[in-house]
Design a protein around this nucleic acid. Structure first.
Lengths: 349, 349
DNA sequence: CGCTAGATTTGGATCGTTCCAAACCGGGGT
DNA sequence: ACCCCGGTTTGGAACGATCCAAATCTAGCG
C-alpha cells in the first residue's frame, strides 16, 4: 500500500509530528513511554512511527539529556580466546542494560592503546573497561582518560600505579592462589622437582603466578633450581621452542606449572618432540582453561578463570559505578578453580 | 600552577573560545586543522585546549555534519576464535580509518540478532557488518536494518535471500573450492574411498563444502557410498561420537574430508578409540586452520581461511561502500588455502 | 590616501531530541 | 458566569559542534 520511495533524508520527530498533527514534544513523550500522553494520541503517533520507519537518534538525545548509552571496551588482544570470551561476557551485560559496547583493540601496543582510548573517549562512553597492554603506564592512561570517565581495570596492573589512581575499580584473577594450588597439586601427586614454565618477567600476572609457585614450593620444603624457571613468549610456538631449556642442566624437573594453557600446550608439543610423553613421563598444568584444554591429549589440568563470567562481572561493576560515581573504589580478586585432568600425572617410578 | 578543581561540567568549544578570546567558529576550525586559521591563533587555541583538558564531542559534530564515525559489527558467536580473529581484523581497519566499532553479539539467536541490530542502529553507524546467526531471515534483517544503512554479510547466506536484497555486499569463503582441493589432495595421495564427515545439512557452508567434495569425487571418477556422508553437530564431542558411522557398512573409507577442524579433531579422537591411528591408517583434512590444527598429533591438513585478513577485508569493503553508496554490490568469495600437514597420509598398502 | 584582493575571524542558524514553563481544555464547584 | 483543577499538549531554548554568509583586518597599489 504505502510504499514510500527511498527517501534520502532521515525521518525525525519533526516528520512524525507533522505526519499526525501533534507537536515534537508530544512525539518525544511517546518515544519515551511517558504516562502523560493520552492513549489515543499515543496510538496515533505509534502508527505514524511505524508507517514512516522512524529510527531513534540516540546521539541527539544523549546530547540534550547529557547522558550516555555506551561503554568502551579496550582489549589488549582480542584474538586471544580468553579475551574474546571476556568481551562476549561484557557485551552480554552491556546489551542487557540497553547500552552498546564500543570496541577497541590495542594489540599489546601501549601506543595503540593511547590512540584507541582517545578515539573512544570522543564518543563519550559512560565508562571504560580496560584490559591494559603489556607495559601500559598508569599516568599515561590517566592522561588519556581524564578523571571524568570511570575506568575499570581488568586482569593486569598498570606500571607505576600510585595511590592517586585508587579511584579506579579493578577486577583481577587470583593468579597467586591459582599457581599455588597447581603447584601443591603436583606436589601431592608426588613430584619434587617442579618447574615454572613460560610467561614474561614484566607481566604482572606472570609475576603473581610465579610468586604463588614459589610459595607453594617453599611451603613443601622444596628448593627451586635456577633453570626451572624458564621465560618465553606466551605463545605455543615459542613455548615449544623453549622446552629444551628445562633439560639443559641437571637435575631435570619431572613436572611444570605453566604460565597459561597456550604455553602448556606448546610445552606438550616440545616434550613430544624430545620423545617425552606428557601426562605419563612428565606432568604439567596450565592456566585459563581455554576450550582446547579439555580436548588436548592428554587433557590438560588447569585453572579455570571463567572469562565469560568475568566479563559479565566487569560490566556489572562498571554499571554499578555509573549508578553511584562516588562510591568507594572496588578491587575484586576473582578466585580461579583448579580443574584436574590427565596431564598432571604422578611421577614415573 | 593552574590546578583546576575537578569541574563537573564538560569543557566545550565555548569554554575554549572564552578562555583565549576568540569565537567558537575559530576554535572549531583549529580542531579540524583548517588551513584558514592564523598560525599564532592556532597556537594560542591549542594551548588552551591542552590547559583545559578539552575532549572533542564527536556525537555533537556528527549531528551537525550529518556524518558518522562508527561501524556496527554483529557477530553470531564472538567466543569462537575464528570470529574473534575476524572481529580483531575488522577493528584494526575501522580504527585505522579513525572510526570506532560498535560491537554486538547475537549468540546464534535470531531474536537477539534483531534486538542487537535495532539497538546499534539507534547509534547511527555508517554501516553494518553482519555475520548472521544460523537461520537468520533476509526479510527480517531488512526490516531491522532498513534500506538506508549499508550492510555487509559475512560468512553465511541469509534464509530466503531474494534478488531484491542484492544491494548488500557479501564476503564469503570459497567453501566449495576448498573442499574440492582437499578431496583432490586425498585422491592424489592415492585414496579411492573418501568420506565427507560432519556438518549440518541446513548450514549453507556445509552444503557448499559437500558440493565441492562431490565434484572432486566425480572428477576423479570415484563413486560415493551413502554411508560415507555423515552428519553431525560441528563440535568435537559429537564428531567423536559419530566416527563409528563411517565403519557401519562396507566398504569402509580410508580417508575423510571433514566439515571443519573441530570435527576433524573430534574424528581423530573417535578413530583412536577404535584403534585406528589417524595420519597413518586413516587420512583426514579439516577446514579453518584454527590454532590447534598445527599442533594436534598428527598435525592437521586443513584449509586456511585467514579470519583476521577476512576481517580487514570486510571492513575495507564496507568503507569503500560508504565512500560510494551507489556502486554496484560486490559479492566476494575469498579463496582458502590448502595447508598440507601430517594427517593426510597416503593409504596403507 | 582611498581602495581592493586576500587572509582571518565571526555571529547567528542548524543538526535531532529533550527540557521547561506556560497554555489549553473540558468539567465541576461556588 | 467565573475560577480552579487535573489531564494533555505545546512552542521556544538548549545540548555541543559546524556551516555559511558576512564582517574585519592587512597590506599593497595607483
Amino acid at each position: 500500500m504505502e510504499s514510500n520511495p527511498p527517501l534520502r533524508r532521515k525521518v525525525t520527530v519533526r516528520d512524525i509530528a507533522a505526519g499526525c498533527g501533534v507537536s515534537r514534544a508530544t512525539v518525544s513523550l511517546v518515544l519515551r513511554g511517558s504516562p502523560l500522553v493520552n492513549k489515543d494520541t499515543r496510538a496515533r503517533v505509534e502508527e505514524e512511527l511505524r508507517k514512516q520507519g522512524y529510527v531513534y537518534n540516540r546521539a541527539a538525545a544523549n546530547l540534550r539529556r547529557r547522558t550516555t548509552s555506551s561503554i568502551a571496551l579496550v582489549i589488549n588482544e582480542l584474538a586471544n580466546p580468553f579475551f574474546a570470551e571476556f568481551a562476549a561476557g561484557v557485551d552480554d551485560v552491556v546489551g542487557e542494560a540497553g547500552m552498546v559496547t564500543l570496541l577497541g583493540s590495542s594489540s599489546e601496543s601501549t601506543k595503540r592503546e593511547q590512540a584507541v582510548l582517545g578515539s573512544l573517549l570522543e564518543h563519550g562512553p559512560g565508562g571504560i573497561i580496560l584490559s591494559p597492554a603489556e607495559g601500559s603506564d598508569a599516568s599515561q592512561v590517566l592522561a588519556a582518560v581524564g578523571a571524568r570517565t570511570p575506568l575499570l581495570l581488568f586482569n593486569r596492573e598498570l606500571v607505576g600505579e600510585q595511590p592517586e589512581y585508587a579511584h579506579w575499580d579493578t577486577l583481577a584473577l587470583d593468579n597467586q592462589q591459582g599457581a599455588r594450588e597447581a603447584t601443591a597439586h603436583l606436589v601431592a601427586q608426588g613430584h619434587r622437582r617442579i618447574a615454572f614454565f613460560g610467561g614474561h618477567r614484566d607481566s604482572s600476572s606472570c609475576r603473581q603466578r610465579r610468586a604463588g609457585y614459589r610459595e607453594a614450593m617453599q611451603a613443601a620444603g622444596l628448593a627451586v633450581a635456577p633453570h626451572w624457571e624458564v621465560e618465553c613468549m606466551p605463545t605455543r610456538l615459542d613455548a615449544a621452542r623453549c622446552a629444551e631449556a628445562l633439560f639443559a642442566a641437571d637435575p631435570a624437573p619431572t613436572a611444570a606449572v605453566c604460565y597459561n594453557d597456550a604455553v602448556a600446550l606448546g610445552l606438550m608439543h616440545g616434550l613430544v618432540e624430545r620423545g617425552l610423553s606428557p601426562g605419563r613421563e612428565f606432568a604439567l598444568t596450565g592456566f585459563d582453561d581455554i576450550a582446547e584444554a579439555a580436548l588436548a591429549t592428554p587433557s590438560l589440568t588447569t585453572l579455570a578463570a571463567a572469562p565469560r563470567a568475568r566479563g559479565r562481572q566487569a560490566a556489572q561493576m562498571l554499571l554499578d559505578r555509573l549508578r553511584d560515581p562516588d562510591a568507594e573504589a572496588r578491587r575484586i580478586v576473582a578466585p580461579v578453580r583448579l580443574v584436574i585432568r590427565a596431564s598432571s600425572c604422578p611421577p614415573t617410578a
